[in-house]
């Protein structure tokens, strides 16, 4: 990442701190900043100078955030929520695709004459490989920086730790448990999955309501407070 890109990323992060500036607002401001930087560079300023002048012209980030808050209200909790929901969906999707592919490969292996213990190995390997493959793909996309970081989702490390945890636990399970043991615990894990599908949505709904209440309360607080 070039020096300018780094400075812009830092400036974006500063704006994202605010509860009021939405990702789309920041994108719009960034477009302005880049236009001004290009214009100033044409006039003979260096990249660093152009950035400083353009940033100054655009205005102090905290003052900008205050102005946006008057128009937007406090919207970050809702944005958080939408990104959380998207994350859950992607995770579920990866799980479904992995299951589908592993079951497909078991079917193919069975048709090719593989049966019994080796079939179990095929099933387990296929499941682990597809899940890890998809997670690795997701990780690559997230770390490549091509994916614009959503406002408020400031800690990419958390996501990395979660993905790494998933991968490691799956890797460790195969040699530690063995295929036979895996079969024995299948119904326990299926029971756990059932519980997650039942409890998960309730937990998500509770989180959604809590966030929504928080967002509304802070918006009301702004409406009541002095408009500076």
């Amino acid at each position: 990442m070039s020096d300018l890109e780094q400075r812009i990323e830092q400036w974006r992060a500063e704006l994202a701190q605010s509860q009021a500036v939405a990702a789309s607002d920041i994108n719009e401001l960034e477009s302005h900043l880049r236009d001004d930087i290009a214009h100033l560079q044409e006039a003979g300023l260096s990249e660093a100078e152009a950035f400083l002048v353009a940033q100054h012209r655009l205005g102090d980030t905290s003052r900008l955030a205050r102005e946006f808050r008057k128009v937007n209200g406090d919207r970050r909790p809702l944005e958080h929520l939408s990104w959380m929901a998207l994350g859950v969906l992607v995770y579920l999707l990866v799980g479904y695709v992995a299951t589908g592919l592993s079951q497909g490969s078991v079917l193919v292996a069975n048709l090719l004459g593989v049966q019994g213990y080796p079939l179990g190995v095929v099933a387990l390997t296929a499941r682990a490989m597809t899940f890890m493959g998809l997670m690795a793909l997701l990780w690559t996309v997230l770390s490549s920086g091509k994916c614009r970081r959503p406002t408020g989702f400031s800690d990419r490390r958390t996501a990395r730790v979660l993905v790494a945890g998933q991968l490691l636990s799956r890797l460790a399970a195969v040699p530690v448990l063995g295929v036979a043991e895996w079969g024995r615990i299948a119904y326990v894990s299926n029971f756990g999955r059932l519980a997650w599908y039942a409890v998960g949505p309730i937990l998500l709904a509770v989180a959604a309501i809590a966030l929504r209440t928080h967002a509304l309360r802070s918006r009301r607080a702004w409406a009541d407070g002095p408009s500076e």
Binding site: D25, E28, R57, G59, E67, F68
Partner: peptide, 10 residues
């Protein structure tokens, strides 16, 4: 102050 335009636009 350039940035102040955007809240007005919105």
């Amino acid at each position: 102050t350039d940035g102040m335009l955007y809240p007005v636009l919105h």
